[in-house]
């Protein structure tokens, strides 16, 4: 069974249709890249998969392991194994990263009927993951993302991805705002999480990111639809010819 199946998805925001029948099938172990120009609906797709309020689904469906994802609250989706790495991770003053991650992990475990993880066990786990991502300990004691640089915020997203061990990771414009070194660290973190059971959907404007996270499948989105799919060479082709050719096709 496919892990994530988006079928003929139609989405509106305030009377304006953004997605006009988008379909996408993601199987375990695969990395899919979704490319497309500004306004093609890439971020809308990621938000609707994660359950962000404010979007009206007027048609189609999203199945996760065969279950109707659209019927679930955002936190239920997270507990089932859907993870969205935000393009712009928010800052939460007064809530320490450490506290937030512990509460979130336990909420997910509780929702799945698993035992809560104790503070010492959590501390050990989070330290290991943080170390592997080169995240200093004191960042965990600070408010979530408060005063973090762009690179630190993205690393914090990957830290969470590693901690929650989701089945599907959606990475929304992970490369935005990162210099080349920060991008490499983030990409290494993502690559370390690739596994035969896990799938990733990498949303990006630029081919550059895909040099570091090499996709199995590349989709081109334009005007709310997938207009072309192919192998990783499609990304290189786009880099040369641009998106203009697809604007007309859409």
């Amino acid at each position: 069974m496919s892990l994530l199946e988006v079928k003929d998805l139609q989405v509106r925001v305030e009377e304006r249709e953004i997605l006009h029948g988008l379909s996408l099938t993601v199987n375990p172990g695969q990395v899919h890249a979704i490319m497309g120009p500004n306004g093609s609906g890439k971020s809308t797709l990621s938000h609707v998969i994660a359950g962000k309020p404010g979007y009206e689904v007027t048609g189609g469906q999203i199945l996760f392991k065969g279950e109707d994802l659209l019927e679930m609250a955002p936190n239920e989706r997270a507990a089932k194994g859907v993870f969205l790495a935000f393009q712009y991770p928010v800052e939460i003053p007064g809530v320490t990263t450490w506290n937030f991650l512990h509460a979130a992990l336990n909420a997910q475990r509780k929702a799945r009927g698993e035992d809560e993880i104790s503070s010492p066990a959590f501390l050990k786990k989070v330290r290991e993951v943080a170390k592997s991502l080169n995240i200093p300990q004191d960042m965990l004691k600070r408010g979530v993302n408060v005063g973090f640089s762009g690179g630190e915020k993205k690393r914090n997203e990957i830290l969470q991805m590693a901690l929650f061990e989701p089945a599907v990771c959606i990475l929304d414009e992970m490369d935005s705002g990162l210099d080349i070194d920060a991008l490499r660290i983030a990409a290494d973190g993502v690559n370390a999480l690739r596994s035969p059971e896990r799938a990733m959907v990498v949303i990006t404007h630029y081919q550059r990111l895909l040099n570091y996270i090499v996709p199995d499948v590349v989709h081109v989105m334009s005007k709310g639809r997938v207009v072309k799919s192919g192998g990783k060479e499609l990304a290189l082709e786009l880099e040369e010819s641009g998106y203009a050719q697809f604007e007309d096709a859409a």
Binding site: A50, G51, K52, P53, A73, P74, N75, R77, A78, A79, F83, L84, F86, P89, V90, I92, F100, L101, A103, A104, L105, A107, Q108, A111, Q160, F164
Partner: peptide, 13 residues
């Protein structure tokens, strides 16, 4: 936006 971020990480509302 903060609430959505937190819920997307698994915390009930």
């Amino acid at each position: 936006s903060l609430l959505f971020y937190m819920r997307a990480r698994g915390l009930p509302e």
